Amino acid sequence: MNTIIKTDFNFPGQTDVYKGKVRDVYTLKNNKLVIVATDRLSAFDVVMPKGIPYKGQILNQIATKMMEATRDLVPNWLEATPDPNVAVGQACEPFKIEMVIRGYLAGHAAREYKAGKRMLCGVEMPNGMKENDKFPEPIITPATKAEQGDHDEDISKEEILKRAIVSKEDYEILEKYTRDLFKRGTEIAAKRGLILVDTKYEFGKNADGEIVLIDEIHTPDSSRYFYADGYRERHDKDEPQKQLSKEFVRQWLIENNFQGKEGQILPEMSDEYIESVSERYIELYEKITGETFVKSDISNIETRIENNVLDYFK
């Protein structure tokens, strides 16, 4: 199937381009950004060689809906989505950390806990927990924002302030925004029969010095969801949770002896497997938004994107 895994646009007034793991960010004059959500799939900080059909559209459209649903709580960078894969908004100076918040002992936190650690990013995790237990209160476990190709690293609030990565005043705003967004995301998920397990938020300062939410929120790439129905029964039986997130890709890679470590060989993704990943992403879109996913025309994605963006800026 046709996917978009690399872009090479030259929009009017373009001054810079940055290629992230999944998104390509085009900077234009007048503090405008055009962010193209590609179909690239990243896991363990490694970009897979094949794209996932409709993944970029799904991420972009979920993020757009979630930005609109939280704008009353936290200002954000987004101004328009002129194409299913494209978001346009204000350029911001990003903070060099990701605000990770966890409501449950899952994923990275569970792996650390299983290894015997009880402190994560300077936050104590209670003894006697088992995987997928709910924390008494959601915990914030920040990560340093990796430069391209590097791994994100856990970091404590104390270390962030000590190294002056973020000022104390700004960090307190980031903490408040993170908790407010997670609470709203949890409420939205609950209405759809889902549990928002953990997620990450990124923030920046706009040209006016205002702290705003940037990047994506509450998507399967940035968040982990469990199905609420059957959660307790599965948990009591120590069975894996039914989940909608990128974790199923990570688990498949682990089963195929790959965790992004040196010397490990990336397993081959068959067309059938890629199709199944695409279907899982569509399932999450429909579950989290409560709407039927409408597949965009992918016969010539690059031309479609270029025409839509140019029309928007006319």
Rank of each mutant, 00 (worst) to 15 (best):
M1Q: 10
N2L: 07
I4S: 01
I5D: 03
I5L: 09
N10I: 09
P12V: 08
Y18G: 06
N31I: 10
T38V: 02
T38M: 06
L41I: 12
A43E: 00
D45A: 04
K50R: 15
G56I: 01
I58L: 10
N60T: 10
N60A: 10
K65S: 10
M66N: 12
E68C: 07
P82Y: 09
Q90Y: 13
P94T: 00
K96T: 09
E98I: 02
M99E: 05
V100R: 00
R102E: 09
G103N: 01
L105T: 06
G107E: 03
G107Y: 02
A110G: 01
A115R: 06
A115E: 14
M119F: 14
C121F: 01
V123A: 08
V123N: 09
E124C: 13
M125S: 07
M129I: 08
E131L: 07
E137L: 02
E137W: 01
P138T: 01
P142L: 03
A146K: 05
E147Y: 10
E172K: 15
I173C: 01
Y177M: 12
T178P: 07
R179H: 14
G185Y: 00
E187L: 04
R192K: 11
L194I: 01
I195L: 06
I195D: 03
V197Y: 01
K200C: 11
F203L: 10
K205D: 11
N206V: 05
A207I: 14
A207Y: 09
E210M: 12
D215N: 13
H218P: 03
S223L: 05
Y227M: 14
A228G: 06
Y231S: 09
K237F: 04
K242P: 02
Q243E: 15
S245H: 07
K246T: 09
N257S: 15
Q259I: 15
I265N: 15
S276T: 12
S278P: 00
E279Y: 04
E279N: 13
R280T: 10
T289R: 05
V294A: 04
D297Y: 09
I305W: 04
I305P: 01
L310S: 10
